[in-house]
């Protein structure tokens, strides 16, 4: 059975400038221990997708449609109390900015122990033990002493490790990791990446790894979903998508990664700007930036089509199979 099965998820923001369809009919599913890379430019709706799963979308946003089945239970119909029992327990989340996620005036110990005791009726000492183990697991030196510290006494990388340790505390089935390494420098980024990958594999935790960088998920994810303007435009097994990207946007993302493509070739940037989410075009949202666009693209948005085992696409003129797609 799949751990998480998201069907036609729709999350809208009701702003003064109009309704922003930040997440528009997004679907994906994850099996036990599977890693999904959710990739897209800034503003494409990745974080909102993550928050929607935990039902933590702030006003003026609201989940307006679709299903979020977690172990066969639709989270949309779960009571607030039931949802709270899942959060941080069965489903954990790691946020984008490690400098902001920990409460500045509470000790690490408080913030970890409360996360354990919100779900388990254990003594403070037992919860503390679990916190020490989790900190050790994510590579915090002398975790016993560090528990007494405040967040500002940690570097950014260390804070993100603490946040990861908190996510691991209750041995969740699913972790939503929202660009947890973007704010960190490159070496720490790859360290944390490797560690999380190992931890997830070890414990069989399913992982949604959100990033705007295809290179990050290349070595980490089992499958990839590429998001553009609130929609998933291409998805499939990581190897297949990287080897033969069918959607012009995915190709654009790949072209902007150093080391990918032929040597000596210039890095290509996707021309144009990210779309205004409050005023999306009628047809394919990528059309204004797409080199392959035709009149058909501007008239009506392309629907999802299957293009091979586990692969799906939203595009009228994908790269032909002869050019690399199975």
């Amino acid at each position: 059975m799949s751990v998480l099965d998201v069907r036609d998820l729709q999350t809208h923001f009701f702003t003064d400038a109009g309704v922003v369809k930040a997440v528009d009919k997004v679907s994906f599913s994850l099996g036990e221990g599977e890693v999904l890379g959710l990739v897209g430019e800034s503003g494409s709706g990745k974080s909102v997708t993550g928050f929607s799963i935990l039902r933590l979308v702030d006003a003026p946003g609201r989940v307006v449609g679709g299903q979020i089945n977690f172990r066969g239970e639709d989270l949309a119909h779960l009571s607030d109390r039931g949802m709270r029992a899942l959060r941080g327990n069965r489903i954990a989340m790691i946020f984008q900015d490690p400098m902001m996620t920990l409460n500045p005036v509470l000790r690490i110990e408080t913030q970890m122990v409360e996360a354990v005791r919100a779900h388990d009726r254990v003594s403070h000492a037992a919860a503390r033990d679990r916190a020490v183990q989790a900190l050790a697991k994510v590579g915090i030196p002398s975790p016993e002493e560090r528990l007494a510290a405040y967040p500002h006494q940690f570097s950014g990388g260390m804070r993100q490790r603490v946040a990861i340790a908190i996510a691991l505390l209750n041995g969740p089935d699913l972790i939503v990791a929202d660009e947890p390494t973007t704010a960190l420098d490159v070496t720490i980024q790859s360290q944390i990446l490797a560690e999380v990958q190992e931890l997830a594999r070890e414990t069989g935790t399913a992982l949604i790894w959100i990033t705007h960088d295809l290179a990050v998920v290349a070595g980490l994810a089992d499958k990839i979903s590429v998001m553009y303007a609130g929609r998933i435009v291409e998805s499939g097994p990581t190897d297949a998508v990287l080897a033969g990207p069918a959607h012009p946007y995915t190709q654009g993302l790949l072209g902007s990664i150093p080391g990918h493509g032929r040597r000596g070739e210039r890095l290509t940037q996707i021309p144009g700007m990210a779309p205004n989410m409050a005023r999306l075009p009628v047809g394919c949202a990528f059309a204004p930036r797409c080199t392959r666009a035709t009149d058909a693209c501007g008239a009506e948005a392309p629907s999802i089509t299957d293009i091979g085992p586990g692969r799906a696409l939203r595009c009228y003129h994908p790269t032909l199979p002869a050019e690399g797609v199975a």
Partner: peptide
């Protein structure tokens, strides 16, 4: 409005 409150909610706190 701070992230730490959202994170606290993500931990499942009341």
């Amino acid at each position: 409005m701070q992230d730490y409150v959202k994170f606290a909610r993500a931990k499942g706190l009341s």
